[in-house]
Design a protein around this nucleic acid. Structure first.
Length: 424
RNA sequence: GGAGAGAUGGCAGAGUGGUCGAAUGCGGUGGUCUUGAAAACCAUUGUACUGCGAGGUACCGGGGGUUCGAAUCCCUCUCUCUCCGCCA
């Protein structure tokens, strides 16, 4: 969330710049400032009354000590009224604070100046294309046919065990999946990311910290008996490592990565274009996360984009990088680049990575700060994350682009991980 | 799941219902001493909100209560440890 200080000092700028996110902030900003004023003045009154009360109490204590019980009891009588006032003021304060909390999280993050105008994903700007779109020889089969032909993923079986969108990877399919995970983790390690294997169930505080709660509650599976949520992305547990922490300036940037399964309810988003591996309830992903110095976060973003680009390059997949427009960028992000790979048989681009700088928006929720030697007070860090990479659509693209009459050719970099070079 | 014990400042660890924001030790920072360092000694050392400032307020795991007054008493939740049970 935006800091109150920032909101108070940049009212007009916020309203202006959020227009690009198609968000009309005027009303919320006014309300936030109004509630913050109320909170402050009420707090002042509470403090003042409390000070009076404290003085009185001390006097009463002294009187008792001096054996002046009579006077002490008289003084006691005077506190009743004051006590009542404090209680009332405290109620008002609590009310103002909780209203403020509700309002302030309604404001999305401010988009970076480079975020282009636009209403939907159609207005995202392609900033780079790479790789070569090769002609597939002979029949072009979509991946959902290929996985059946080679018996490497079983959707029907997953439906039996769990439900739609929970595929079972089998044999070489499972092995290829594991190969991709290991390849991504090894590449991440080479790029300086520290591997963590976090819990995939998280509590409410964590969900709030990265911005999934309270708004996007519907995207997550909720284990109600224990009030825990299945993670929709490793971003949640990995970023929350630093919730309520003050890190040393010289430790920045903190670079972590994690492989986890990810769970998304995707309620109401089924229909065309979601066949096969295109959209699942459970999928595997390697995520990279950086905790950055505020002055360096855009350098960090560039390095993350470069890392993801190296991955798709090494896999030999045709790709393009998009700068998300105001209408498509997420609520919490300041700047996002999406990676898409070309899927030969579907003849469409599939999103396989999203790399974002959240600046201090998540950090403010997380209360994650850093402190340097010459700093008087800790300041909020910047947080970033990106998929490196999400597996199912990468797998779909590999299957479709590398299909030959003999079988599916495995990209060279994966062969040592798979132990085979063709699926037939 | 059952029984018990506990949660205090960066860490360790005291704390009688009334100058307790909290003893003490370690650590951190500054200084004295020293050619330099160590040791020793002296001083200083929590966070947040608020006020121009002096200051004020809150915080001893979270929430609630009793009381003129709570780190201290009561209720409740969470977590940790020990024992028992179950178990990958």
């Amino acid at each position: 969330m935006l800091t109150l200080k920032f909101i108070r000092e940049n009212k007009d700028e916020i309203i202006n710049r959020l227009k690009i996110k198609r968000f009309d902030a005027a009303e919320v900003v006014e309300k936030v400032i109004e509630l913050d004023d109320l909170r402050r003045s009420t707090q002042g009154e509470v403090d003042q009354k409390q000070a009076e009360m404290n003085t009185l109490s001390k006097e009463i204590g002294m009187l008792f000590k001096q054996g002046k019980a009579q006077e002490a009891n008289e003084a006691k009588a005077k506190t009743a009224d004051l006590k009542e006032q404090i209680k009332e003021l405290n109620n008002q304060l609590n009310e103002a604070t909780s209203s403020l909390d509700i309002e302030v999280v309604k404001l999305p993050n401010i988009p970076h100046p480079s975020v282009p105008e636009g209403n939907s994903d159609e207005d995202n700007v392609v900033i780079k294309e790479g790789g070569v779109i090769k002609e597939v020889e002979g029949e072009k089969a979509p991946h959902w046919d290929l996985i059946e032909k080679y018996d490497i993923i079983d959707f029907k079986l997953g439906t039996k065990i769990t439900g739609a969108g929970f595929p079972v990877y089998k044999g070489k399919g499972a092995r290829l999946q594991r190969a991709l995970i290991n390849f991504f983790l090894d590449e991440g390690e080479k790029a300086g990311y520290n591997e963590v294997l976090p819990p995939i169930l998280v509590n409410e505080d964590s969900g709030f910290g990265t911005g999934q709660l309270p708004d996007k509650e519907g995207m997550m599976y909720h284990a109600t008996a224990d009030n825990l949520y299945l993670i929709p992305t490793a971003e949640v547990p990995v970023t929350n490592i630093y919730r309520d922490e003050v890190v040393k300036e010289e430790e920045l940037p903190l670079k972590n990565m994690a492989y986890t399964p990810c769970f998304r309810r995707e309620a109401g988003s089924w229909g065309a274009h979601v066949r096969g591996l295109n959209r699942l309830h459970q999928f595997d992903k390697v995520e990279i996360v950086q905790i950055s110095h505020p002055d360096k976060s855009y350098e960090a973003l560039d390095s993350m984009v470069a890392h993801v680009e190296s991955l798709v390059n090494k896999l030999g997949l045709p790709y393009r990088i998009l700068r998300l427009c105001g209408g498509d960028i997420s609520f919490t992000s300041a700047l996002t680049f999406d990676f898409e790979v070309y899927s030969a048989a579907q003849e469409r681009w599939l999103e396989v990575s999203s790399v974002s700088n959240f600046e201090n928006y998540q950090a403010n929720r997380l209360k994650c700060r850093f402190k340097g030697k010459d700093m008087k007070k800790p300041e909020l860090v910047h947080t970033l994350n990106g998929s490196a990479l999400a597996l199912p659509r990468i797998l779909a693209a590999i299957l479709e682009n590398n299909q030959t009459a003999e079988g599916i050719k495995i990209p060279e970099v994966l062969v040592p991980y798979c132990g085979f070079d063709i699926i037939k």
